[in-house]
Amino acid sequence: MAQAVAHDQKEHAAGGHGHGHPPTSLGLNSRKVGLWTFISSEAIFFTALISTYLVLKPRNIALGGPEPQDFLGITLTAILAFILLMSSLTMVLALHAVETDNVRGTRLWLGATILLGLMFLGGQVYEFNKLWSEGFHTIVITEPDGKVERIGVAEHHLEEELPHLQAEHPNAQIQDTGRKPVTWTTSLFGSTFFTMTGFHGTHVAIGVVWLSIVLVMSLRGAISSRNSLTVEMAGLYWHFVDLVWVAIFTLIYLI
């Protein structure tokens, strides 16, 4: 903070972005300062959601809930991660286009970003739908000494898993509690997973709406290098949403 104090007089002349805004004491655009502040608040929002997932994960398994790795396919998520990375690239290309007053480029890359965002959302809908249709069984194993263990077995592994369990617990009583679908309410895994990724998807959707508004403005000729900040702000938010996916991809899907 100390060196900033020394600078703040000097930077006074730097001024805000575009015209009509008086110079600011940090020489930075106020909207951008506000957006960065909001982004760091959002970072804590998602941290709380991801932490909820992580701390409830062992409970989910101990209670015989579905094992995440039986249901979360890495291939699909890798594609989703790739789509979002791609959209981040098109986003910065759109910013570059607007900064160099390349009108066609601006529209092209904004459109591409929106399209990739929609593809990501489509992928998420597909994934949710697929999970919803799958099932798991909670197997309750009661040992002769009264110890009870619960194991969640995916429906598609049931045939091969049951003999294994019987072999491992020869004297135990093994009871299948029946099929449950992998939905929001049937297990802690479902609750935490759908809530977390659902909120991320909502942020992507909001980003798509925001970018669409910017695209419409661009089509009306209201966007140029003089107000490239309009594109930059939408971009900052968009990259942040991508950033959250980088964390979710690793912590939830890969580990």
Binding site: G18, D101, V103, S218, G221, A222, I223, S224, R226, N227
Partner: peptide, 9 residues
Amino acid sequence: MANQTSSQA
């Protein structure tokens, strides 16, 4: 700002 055109000139 909204009323500016984006023409290169």
